[in-house]
Protein backbone atom coordinates (compact mmCIF):
# COMPACT_ATOMS: atom_id res chain seq x y z
CA UNK A 1 0.00 0.00 0.00
CA UNK A 2 2.67 2.47 0.99
CA UNK A 3 4.78 1.56 -2.00
CA UNK A 4 1.78 1.99 -4.26
CA UNK A 5 1.03 5.41 -2.83
CA UNK A 6 4.60 6.58 -3.19
CA UNK A 7 4.59 5.45 -6.80
CA UNK A 8 1.33 7.26 -7.47
CA UNK A 9 2.57 10.45 -5.83
CA UNK A 10 5.76 10.32 -7.86
CA UNK A 11 3.72 9.76 -11.02
CA UNK A 12 2.06 13.14 -10.47
CA UNK A 13 5.29 14.85 -11.49
CA UNK A 14 5.58 13.61 -15.10
CA UNK A 15 1.85 14.08 -15.67
CA UNK A 16 2.02 17.66 -14.44
CA UNK A 17 5.07 18.33 -16.57
CA UNK A 18 3.28 16.93 -19.61
CA UNK A 19 0.18 19.05 -19.11
CA UNK A 20 2.03 22.27 -18.36
CA UNK A 21 4.45 21.69 -21.23
CA UNK A 22 1.60 21.23 -23.67
CA UNK A 23 -0.17 24.34 -22.45
CA UNK A 24 3.07 26.27 -22.46
CA UNK A 25 3.77 25.34 -26.06
CA UNK A 26 0.18 26.19 -26.94
CA UNK A 27 0.48 29.64 -25.44
CA UNK A 28 3.82 30.19 -27.15
CA UNK A 29 3.28 28.82 -30.62
CA UNK A 30 -0.24 29.96 -31.40
CA UNK A 31 -0.77 33.54 -32.50
CA UNK A 32 -2.53 36.03 -30.30
CA UNK A 33 0.04 36.35 -27.55
CA UNK A 34 0.70 39.60 -25.76
CA UNK A 35 3.30 40.74 -28.29
CA UNK A 36 1.14 40.11 -31.33
CA UNK A 37 -1.64 41.92 -29.57
CA UNK A 38 0.57 44.89 -28.83
CA UNK A 39 1.71 44.92 -32.46
CA UNK A 40 -1.82 44.79 -33.73
CA UNK A 41 -3.01 47.47 -31.35
CA UNK A 42 -0.25 49.80 -32.47
CA UNK A 43 -0.97 49.10 -36.14
CA UNK A 44 -4.62 49.93 -35.69
CA UNK A 45 -3.82 53.00 -33.66
CA UNK A 46 -1.58 54.22 -36.43
CA UNK A 47 -4.26 53.56 -38.99
CA UNK A 48 -6.76 55.53 -36.97
CA UNK A 49 -4.28 58.35 -36.50
CA UNK A 50 -3.50 58.54 -40.19
CA UNK A 51 -7.19 58.52 -41.01
CA UNK A 52 -8.03 61.19 -38.50
CA UNK A 53 -5.22 63.69 -38.71
CA UNK A 54 -2.78 64.12 -41.53
CA UNK A 55 -0.05 65.83 -39.53
CA UNK A 56 0.95 62.71 -37.58
CA UNK A 57 4.20 61.38 -38.91
CA UNK A 58 4.19 58.05 -40.74
CA UNK A 59 5.19 55.39 -38.22
CA UNK A 60 4.77 51.77 -38.99
CA UNK A 61 4.00 49.71 -35.89
CA UNK A 62 6.39 49.43 -32.99
CA UNK A 63 10.03 50.24 -33.28
CA UNK A 64 12.58 47.44 -32.99
CA UNK A 65 13.70 48.66 -29.59
CA UNK A 66 10.15 48.61 -28.28
CA UNK A 67 9.69 45.12 -29.64
CA UNK A 68 12.90 43.92 -27.99
CA UNK A 69 11.78 45.47 -24.73
CA UNK A 70 8.36 43.80 -24.92
CA UNK A 71 9.92 40.45 -25.75
CA UNK A 72 12.22 40.72 -22.77
CA UNK A 73 9.38 41.83 -20.52
CA UNK A 74 7.23 38.84 -21.40
CA UNK A 75 10.15 36.44 -21.56
CA UNK A 76 9.71 35.77 -25.26
CA UNK A 77 13.35 36.37 -26.10
CA UNK A 78 14.36 32.84 -25.16
CA UNK A 79 13.60 29.63 -27.07
CA UNK A 80 10.61 27.64 -25.85
CA UNK A 81 12.45 24.91 -23.97
CA UNK A 82 14.62 27.39 -22.07
CA UNK A 83 11.61 29.51 -21.21
CA UNK A 84 9.74 26.45 -20.02
CA UNK A 85 12.66 25.26 -17.95
CA UNK A 86 13.02 28.62 -16.28
CA UNK A 87 9.27 28.65 -15.59
CA UNK A 88 9.56 25.17 -14.10
CA UNK A 89 12.56 26.20 -12.02
CA UNK A 90 10.56 29.08 -10.60
CA UNK A 91 7.59 26.82 -9.87
CA UNK A 92 9.81 24.50 -7.87
CA UNK A 93 10.66 27.52 -5.74
CA UNK A 94 6.90 28.18 -5.37
CA UNK A 95 7.08 31.24 -7.58
CA UNK A 96 4.47 31.24 -10.34
CA UNK A 97 5.72 34.41 -12.00
CA UNK A 98 4.13 37.84 -12.32
CA UNK A 99 0.82 38.57 -13.98
CA UNK A 100 1.03 40.73 -17.12
CA UNK A 101 -2.20 42.46 -16.35
CA UNK A 102 -2.17 43.04 -12.62
CA UNK A 103 1.62 43.41 -12.28
CA UNK A 104 1.44 41.29 -9.17
CA UNK A 105 2.81 37.85 -8.35
CA UNK A 106 0.37 35.19 -9.55
CA UNK A 107 0.69 33.45 -6.22
CA UNK A 108 -0.67 36.53 -4.43
CA UNK A 109 -3.60 36.76 -6.84
CA UNK A 110 -4.44 33.13 -6.21
CA UNK A 111 -4.00 33.49 -2.44
CA UNK A 112 -6.45 36.39 -2.34
CA UNK A 113 -9.15 34.38 -4.06
CA UNK A 114 -8.51 31.02 -2.48
CA UNK A 115 -10.72 31.48 0.65
CA UNK A 116 -13.79 32.31 -1.44
CA UNK A 117 -13.33 29.31 -3.72
CA UNK A 118 -12.59 26.94 -0.87
CA UNK A 119 -15.65 28.17 1.01
CA UNK A 120 -17.99 27.50 -1.89
CA UNK A 121 -16.30 24.29 -2.94
CA UNK A 122 -16.26 22.73 0.51
CA UNK A 123 -19.83 23.65 1.36
CA UNK A 124 -21.03 22.38 -2.01
CA UNK A 125 -19.22 19.08 -1.52
CA UNK A 126 -20.48 18.58 2.02
CA UNK A 127 -24.05 19.55 1.18
CA UNK A 128 -24.03 17.34 -1.90
CA UNK A 129 -23.06 14.31 0.12
CA UNK A 130 -25.53 15.14 2.87
CA UNK A 131 -28.38 15.53 0.43
CA UNK A 132 -27.52 12.78 -2.03
CA UNK A 133 -26.90 9.83 0.23
CA UNK A 134 -30.26 9.97 2.06
CA UNK A 135 -32.12 10.77 -1.14
CA UNK A 136 -30.39 7.96 -3.00
CA UNK A 137 -31.26 5.52 -0.21
CA UNK A 138 -34.86 6.68 -0.24
CA UNK A 139 -35.08 6.30 -4.00
CA UNK A 140 -33.55 2.85 -3.95
CA UNK A 141 -35.75 1.58 -1.11
CA UNK A 142 -38.90 3.02 -2.67
CA UNK A 143 -37.86 1.96 -6.15
CA UNK A 144 -40.60 2.24 -8.79
CA UNK A 145 -43.07 4.00 -6.50
CA UNK A 146 -44.38 7.53 -6.95
CA UNK A 147 -41.72 8.87 -4.58
CA UNK A 148 -39.00 7.51 -6.83
CA UNK A 149 -40.49 8.78 -10.07
CA UNK A 150 -41.39 12.23 -8.77
CA UNK A 151 -37.90 12.79 -7.36
CA UNK A 152 -36.50 11.42 -10.61
CA UNK A 153 -38.26 14.14 -12.56
CA UNK A 154 -37.00 16.74 -10.11
CA UNK A 155 -33.44 15.48 -10.29
CA UNK A 156 -33.50 15.25 -14.04
CA UNK A 157 -34.81 18.77 -14.39
CA UNK A 158 -32.05 19.93 -12.07
CA UNK A 159 -29.48 18.10 -14.18
CA UNK A 160 -30.70 19.72 -17.39
CA UNK A 161 -30.95 23.27 -16.08
CA UNK A 162 -27.75 25.12 -16.88
CA UNK A 163 -26.44 26.59 -13.64
CA UNK A 164 -26.05 30.03 -15.14
CA UNK A 165 -29.66 30.12 -16.37
CA UNK A 166 -30.86 29.20 -12.91
CA UNK A 167 -28.56 31.84 -11.47
CA UNK A 168 -30.00 34.37 -13.88
CA UNK A 169 -33.56 33.55 -12.86
CA UNK A 170 -32.67 33.66 -9.18
CA UNK A 171 -30.79 36.94 -9.43
CA UNK A 172 -33.44 38.64 -11.49
CA UNK A 173 -36.42 37.36 -9.57
CA UNK A 174 -35.33 36.78 -5.98
CA UNK A 175 -32.59 39.38 -5.94
CA UNK A 176 -34.02 42.06 -8.17
CA UNK A 177 -37.78 41.77 -7.97
CA UNK A 178 -38.49 40.45 -4.50
CA UNK A 179 -35.24 41.78 -2.95
CA UNK A 180 -35.05 38.78 -0.65
CA UNK A 181 -31.39 38.18 -1.26
CA UNK A 182 -28.45 40.37 -2.22
CA UNK A 183 -27.81 40.36 -5.94
CA UNK A 184 -24.06 39.98 -5.95
CA UNK A 185 -20.81 39.86 -4.05
CA UNK A 186 -19.38 37.65 -1.33
CA UNK A 187 -19.95 39.98 1.65
CA UNK A 188 -21.69 43.32 2.03
CA UNK A 189 -19.85 46.64 2.16
CA UNK A 190 -20.11 47.17 5.91
CA UNK A 191 -18.76 43.70 6.61
CA UNK A 192 -15.93 44.73 8.94
CA UNK A 193 -18.19 46.76 11.25
CA UNK A 194 -20.33 43.75 12.16
CA UNK A 195 -19.92 41.35 15.06
CA UNK A 196 -18.94 37.71 14.60
CA UNK A 197 -22.48 36.42 14.23
CA UNK A 198 -23.37 39.33 12.02
CA UNK A 199 -20.43 38.50 9.78
CA UNK A 200 -21.28 34.82 9.69
CA UNK A 201 -24.88 35.56 8.79
CA UNK A 202 -23.73 38.02 6.17
CA UNK A 203 -21.62 35.39 4.42
CA UNK A 204 -24.42 32.82 4.59
CA UNK A 205 -26.97 35.35 3.39
CA UNK A 206 -24.83 36.19 0.38
CA UNK A 207 -24.11 32.59 -0.50
CA UNK A 208 -27.64 31.13 -0.52
CA UNK A 209 -28.32 31.87 -4.18
CA UNK A 210 -24.89 30.87 -5.54
CA UNK A 211 -24.90 27.68 -3.49
CA UNK A 212 -28.26 26.71 -4.96
CA UNK A 213 -26.69 26.97 -8.41
CA UNK A 214 -23.57 25.06 -7.40
CA UNK A 215 -25.65 22.29 -5.86
CA UNK A 216 -28.14 21.79 -8.64
CA UNK A 217 -25.57 20.44 -11.09
CA UNK A 218 -23.53 18.17 -8.87
CA UNK A 219 -26.56 16.85 -7.05
CA UNK A 220 -28.15 14.80 -9.82
CA UNK A 221 -25.32 12.49 -10.84
CA UNK A 222 -24.40 11.70 -7.26
CA UNK A 223 -27.95 10.76 -6.28
CA UNK A 224 -28.37 8.51 -9.29
CA UNK A 225 -25.01 6.87 -8.54
CA UNK A 226 -26.05 6.24 -4.96
CA UNK A 227 -29.42 4.84 -5.99
CA UNK A 228 -28.04 2.53 -8.65
CA UNK A 229 -25.27 1.16 -6.49
CA UNK A 230 -27.65 0.52 -3.58
CA UNK A 231 -30.13 -1.16 -5.93
CA UNK A 232 -27.40 -3.36 -7.31
CA UNK A 233 -26.39 -4.40 -3.82
CA UNK A 234 -29.97 -5.01 -2.73
CA UNK A 235 -30.40 -7.55 -5.49
CA UNK A 236 -27.21 -9.38 -4.56
CA UNK A 237 -27.22 -12.86 -3.08
CA UNK A 238 -25.87 -11.95 0.33
CA UNK A 239 -28.77 -9.56 0.90
CA UNK A 240 -31.24 -12.29 0.05
CA UNK A 241 -29.46 -14.51 2.54
CA UNK A 242 -29.65 -11.80 5.16
CA UNK A 243 -33.38 -11.39 4.56
CA UNK A 244 -33.86 -15.15 4.55
CA UNK A 245 -32.26 -15.63 7.93
CA UNK A 246 -34.81 -13.19 9.33
CA UNK A 247 -32.92 -9.99 9.89
CA UNK A 248 -35.08 -6.87 10.11
CA UNK A 249 -35.03 -4.95 6.84
CA UNK A 250 -33.52 -1.86 8.47
CA UNK A 251 -30.47 -3.81 9.57
CA UNK A 252 -30.12 -5.40 6.17
CA UNK A 253 -30.36 -2.12 4.28
CA UNK A 254 -28.37 0.16 6.55
CA UNK A 255 -25.80 -2.26 7.87
CA UNK A 256 -25.17 -4.64 5.01
CA UNK A 257 -26.18 -3.04 1.76
CA UNK A 258 -25.45 0.61 2.46
CA UNK A 259 -21.83 0.04 3.41
CA UNK A 260 -21.06 -1.74 0.20
CA UNK A 261 -22.95 0.71 -1.94
CA UNK A 262 -20.92 3.63 -0.62
CA UNK A 263 -17.86 2.36 -2.51
CA UNK A 264 -18.53 4.11 -5.84
CA UNK A 265 -19.27 7.33 -3.95
CA UNK A 266 -15.90 7.12 -2.26
CA UNK A 267 -14.33 6.75 -5.68
CA UNK A 268 -15.88 10.02 -6.81
CA UNK A 269 -14.70 11.86 -3.73
CA UNK A 270 -11.46 12.98 -5.28
CA UNK A 271 -13.10 14.74 -8.20
CA UNK A 272 -14.82 17.07 -5.78
CA UNK A 273 -11.46 18.22 -4.48
CA UNK A 274 -10.57 19.76 -7.80
CA UNK A 275 -14.01 21.36 -7.94
CA UNK A 276 -13.14 23.10 -4.69
CA UNK A 277 -10.21 24.79 -6.34
CA UNK A 278 -11.44 25.58 -9.80
CA UNK A 279 -14.97 26.62 -8.98
CA UNK A 280 -17.46 27.37 -11.65
CA UNK A 281 -16.64 30.33 -13.78
CA UNK A 282 -20.15 31.11 -14.97
CA UNK A 283 -21.72 31.05 -11.53
CA UNK A 284 -18.98 33.33 -10.32
CA UNK A 285 -19.70 35.83 -13.09
CA UNK A 286 -23.46 35.73 -12.61
CA UNK A 287 -23.12 36.51 -8.92
CA UNK A 288 -20.04 38.68 -9.28
CA UNK A 289 -17.94 36.57 -6.92
CA UNK A 290 -14.22 37.14 -7.31
CA UNK A 291 -13.05 33.55 -7.14
CA UNK A 292 -10.38 31.38 -8.73
CA UNK A 293 -12.57 30.32 -11.65
CA UNK A 294 -13.14 33.91 -12.70
CA UNK A 295 -9.44 34.68 -12.40
CA UNK A 296 -8.45 31.76 -14.62
CA UNK A 297 -10.99 32.37 -17.34
CA UNK A 298 -10.46 36.10 -17.50
CA UNK A 299 -6.76 35.35 -17.81
CA UNK A 300 -7.45 33.14 -20.84
CA UNK A 301 -9.33 35.88 -22.59
CA UNK A 302 -6.81 38.55 -21.74
CA UNK A 303 -3.81 36.40 -22.69
CA UNK A 304 -2.43 36.78 -19.20
CA UNK A 305 -0.36 33.65 -19.66
CA UNK A 306 1.41 33.45 -16.27
CA UNK A 307 -1.98 33.44 -14.56
CA UNK A 308 -3.27 30.84 -17.02
CA UNK A 309 -0.30 28.60 -16.36
CA UNK A 310 -0.52 29.15 -12.61
CA UNK A 311 -4.20 28.33 -12.25
CA UNK A 312 -3.91 25.38 -14.64
CA UNK A 313 -0.93 24.06 -12.69
CA UNK A 314 -2.76 24.30 -9.38
CA UNK A 315 -6.04 22.84 -10.63
CA UNK A 316 -4.33 19.90 -12.35
CA UNK A 317 -2.25 19.29 -9.27
CA UNK A 318 -5.35 19.15 -7.12
CA UNK A 319 -7.14 16.95 -9.63
CA UNK A 320 -4.30 14.41 -9.57
CA UNK A 321 -4.03 14.72 -5.81
CA UNK A 322 -7.78 14.15 -5.53
CA UNK A 323 -7.45 11.00 -7.62
CA UNK A 324 -4.97 9.58 -5.14
CA UNK A 325 -7.22 10.65 -2.31
CA UNK A 326 -10.12 8.75 -3.82
CA UNK A 327 -7.93 5.68 -4.07
CA UNK A 328 -7.12 5.95 -0.38
CA UNK A 329 -10.80 6.44 0.41
CA UNK A 330 -11.61 3.41 -1.68
CA UNK A 331 -9.08 1.34 0.23
CA UNK A 332 -10.50 2.47 3.56
CA UNK A 333 -14.12 1.78 2.62
CA UNK A 334 -13.46 -1.46 0.81
CA UNK A 335 -10.96 -3.70 2.58
CA UNK A 336 -11.04 -6.14 -0.34
CA UNK A 337 -9.01 -3.73 -2.41
CA UNK A 338 -5.30 -4.38 -2.13
CA UNK A 339 -2.95 -2.14 -3.99
CA UNK A 340 0.13 -3.76 -5.32
CA UNK A 341 3.08 -1.80 -6.52
Amino acid sequence: MRQYLIRRILLIIPTLIGITLLTFILTRVVPGGPIEQALMESRFQNQNVSFQSQNAGPRDGLSDDDLEYLKKLYGFDKPIYLAYLSWLYKVVQLDLGDSYRYNEPVWNLIKERLPVSIYYGLITTVLTYFACIPLGILKAVKDKTWIDSSTSILIFTGYSVPAFVLGLILVVYMGGRLEWFPMQGFVSDDFSSKGFFGQAWDVIYHSILPLTCYLIGSFASMTVLMKNSLLENLSADYIRTAFAKGLPSKTVIYKHALRNSLIPLAASFGNNISLVFTGSYLIETVFNIDGLGLLGYMAVTERDYPVVMGTLFLSSFFFLFGNILSDICLAIVDPRIRFTA
Partner: peptide, 13 residues
Protein backbone atom coordinates in the same frame (compact mmCIF):
# COMPACT_ATOMS: atom_id res chain seq x y z
CA UNK B 1 -5.09 15.63 -20.64
CA UNK B 2 -8.71 16.30 -21.57
CA UNK B 3 -9.91 14.98 -18.23
CA UNK B 4 -7.67 17.26 -16.23
CA UNK B 5 -7.94 20.49 -18.20
CA UNK B 6 -11.33 22.05 -17.40
CA UNK B 7 -13.69 21.82 -20.36
CA UNK B 8 -14.77 25.43 -20.74
CA UNK B 9 -11.16 26.50 -20.25
CA UNK B 10 -9.96 24.41 -23.17
CA UNK B 11 -12.80 25.52 -25.42
CA UNK B 12 -12.12 29.16 -24.65
CA UNK B 13 -8.42 28.79 -25.45
Amino acid sequence: FFEIVPQLFFVLI
